[in-house]
């Protein structure tokens, strides 16, 4: 008995389409790049713009490590095609500090030890920035629920909630 292993595309493979030039405003600066249709915003940031602060933890919208702010809203950059965000304003973890001074959330994450390995941290912080901007979370329960799209395998959740509460108090 034999078994044909890999997935079979339904038709012939098209020649790789031309790369598409796009412009993004990344952390306040204009970034011009050429991407394939299937290049995700995450891969564009990490591989094309060398902004590796945004992390790839699953590439399927299951972990939240890739969270960035697009036009002020938190999204999963792994499930976003770069080409679809032409002209958009993207804020990554690298864009939060101002003139060397940490964003209140960044400082709060350090103060409350809201991370261990650090790999989910960029996504947590960007997600928290989005959460504060949304203004929907007031109680600890609400923060927990609205931060549940960011998995922390090290288990820093209570400290993450405390850090967000500290930053909320300041903003």
């Amino acid at each position: 008995m034999t078994h044909s292993g890999t997935t079979k595309p339904k038709g012939p493979i098209a020649a790789a389409p031309e790369k598409i030039p796009i412009t993004l405003i990344v952390n306040g600066a204009e970034a011009k790049l050429s991407v394939a249709p299937w290049t995700t915003l995450l891969d564009a940031l990490r591989d094309y713009l060398d902004l590796t602060g945004t992390k790839k933890g699953c590439d399927h919208g299951q972990c939240g490590a890739c969270t960035v702010l697009v036009d002020g809203r938190r999204i999963n950059s792994c499930l976003t095609l770069a080409v679809m965000k032409e002209g958009a304003e993207v804020t990554t973890v690298e864009g939060l500090a101002r003139n060397g001074e940490l964003h209140p959330l960044q400082q709060a994450f350090i103060d409350h030890d809201a991370f261990q390995c650090g790999y989910c941290t960029s996504g947590q912080i960007c997600s928290a920035a989005g959460l504060i901007a949304e203004g929907k979370a007031k109680t600890a329960d609400e923060i927990r629920e609205l931060m549940s799209g960011n998995i922390c395998r090290c288990g820093a959740y209570p400290n993450i909630v405390a850090a967000i509460q500290q930053a909320m108090g300041r903003s």
Binding site: G61, G64, L79, S127, G130, L131, E134, G149
Partner: peptide, 9 residues
């Protein structure tokens, strides 16, 4: 459903 990030998209 989902997460706030996914709901935003």
């Amino acid at each position: 459903g989902a997460s706030q990030q996914l709901r935003n998209m």
